[in-house]
Design a protein around this nucleic acid. Structure first.
Lengths: 128, 128
DNA sequence: TCATTGGTTAAGGAAGTACTTGACTATAAA
DNA sequence: TTTATAGTCAAGTACTTCCTTAACCAATGA
């Protein structure tokens, strides 16, 4: 019997694979987060992605490669311009992991609250 | 005028500071994510946190220091045992950033859908 | 008191990251 | 055809990360 919480299958949780390593690693960099934020608004050629960033083009390309390696971004070259677009599923993988931790935490708090309400003396009381 | 989405204030978004760097960096490591997952279930002394991990104690301590440095974990030493506990707010900071990106993405998709529905010929049609 | 347990400090090393510059290729525009 | 644009490749460097071992300290417990 499996329990579904939104898009999150609870039974046999893992399956995040080593990919979480790379996604969080990718998001751990200011520049790359800025790129993600830009790409969320729509596909962008490399040169425009580079414009607001104070670094060389090769550096920008390396960031893009990191984003592509973890599946956060896909890109396609047409003529001489390479256009990048975001892949929102992977973003959601990271969000799901965090949500999972939070819900575990909240569930535990609830159980703890119940326990503290039940146990110490005062056996029959209106809940709350 | 500000719009509130859950606990997420949309106007003047940033404010995540450089802390996101450190949080995502901390979560980019398998071992540290395992620690977080363990700590979600309740406070744990260092030695127990270390037990399932195949590495030296100093290594474990260094991971704990990373988690403390970004505010994900607090610890307190009583007698000779140091007990670690999770700090869920920081976890939520990361989750919020990701949720923000996802909602931006979804909003854009909606607008794009509306645009595609309105624009091409067929001006007055039942929506859908 | 002495040994054990639980943790800490310091130093070092292998591997990885985030850049750089310089040389190069392919497309597009003049 | 020439020149500019957009991107790519390679190599090198400073810095960081993740781990190790060895020596150490301070609270317990026998």
């Amino acid at each position: 019997m499996t329990i579904n919480v939104c898009r999150l299958i609870v039974k046999n949780m893992p399956n995040y694979g080593g990919s979480l390593d790379r996604v969080f690693q990718a998001l751990a960099d200011r520049t790359r987060r800025a790129m993600v934020q830009r790409l969320i608004r729509g596909p962008v050629p490399v040169s425009e992605l580079a414009r607001p960033l104070e670094m060389s083009l090769p550096a920008v390309m390396q960031h893009i490669q990191v984003l592509e390696a973890c599946g956060l971004v896909r890109s396609e070259k047409i003529g001489r311009v390479r256009t990048c677009r975001i892949e929102p599923d992977v973003l959601r993988t990271a969000e799901d992991w965090l949500a999972e931790q939070r819900t575990s935490w909240e569930r535990r708090l609830d159980q703890l609250g119940d326990y503290l309400l039940d146990d110490p003396g005062t056996p029959e009381q209106g809940s709350l």
